[in-house]
Design a protein around this nucleic acid. Sequence first.
DNA 1: CCTAGGGTCTATAGTCACTATAGGGTCAAG
DNA 2: CTTGACCCTATAGTGACTATAGACCCTAGG
Lengths: 135, 135
Amino acid sequence: MKSEDLKIGDLARATGTKVVTIRYYEKIGLLPAPARSAGNYRSYDGAALQRLRFIRRCRDLGFSLEQIRELLLLSSETGQPCAEVDEITAVHLAEVERKIADLQALADELRRISARCSGGGTISNCRILEAMTPG
Amino acid sequence: MKSEDLKIGDLARATGTKVVTIRYYEKIGLLPAPARSAGNYRSYDGAALQRLRFIRRCRDLGFSLEQIRELLLLSSETGQPCAEVDEITAVHLAEVERKIADLQALADELRRISARCSGGGTISNCRILEAMTPG
DNA sequence: CCTAGGGTCTATAGTCACTATAGGGTCAAG
DNA sequence: CTTGACCCTATAGTGACTATAGACCCTAGG
């Protein structure tokens, strides 16, 4: 039993991932199926730890699992140009920036709506509901 | 056949909602089941149009269907104080603001990462992948 | 040796807000 | 009377998990 032999719970703790999520990643092919112990427990090595850490880091950066799948694939093609990696990142950044803009417009409108509430009114003359009613 | 008798497609066009979405709203009880025509077609009146417009407006404002369900319920209790409406709006606004902050931190980091790419490198010395690899 | 607990296993269903598909029925125009 | 647009139901799929049920494994204490 080498020091890098990890049970699924160890891997979960080491990466801040839930056990069920790790099994889920395996099921969808993002993590390879690991070796099994005598009692049929999953047994992970250092490479699996690294791979999962990479996945989690990318998730924290907001990449989708499909994008991560692509990044993992690309990262194994060591000789290839990294233009595609750049492209995936740029596309994702643009998407995040668009979401920020959308949410900011939303927050502005919500603040505008919320400010109309005098506090202590009743439903029938509620300015918030009024602002939510079109026409 | 009154002028306010709408088929599901008419209602869809009038509110910018997809037909399937309207049926979905009915299934989850957000819209009441409407009357049916001789040929078993759904037949909507002006009240349904108003209700769906309200729902869509709230969806555009980013409220969840559960929040909208609550708002619809509250909006029928005309004599009650509107404090709860205010509360739902405030909670939602806070959530949107938190999301904006999260995404901004994300965008900053992605820009930082993206800026490291010299362009024209290969995978093996890709600074983007490097930045995504923890440790 | 037994038992209690904690961890692990599989498989299945649920979440949210739709979206897609299959396989039909209805209706007005040409 | 056929074409084509619209409508119907029911079911399954999406993304990224989360939750549950019911069983198995493993270790420590008595």
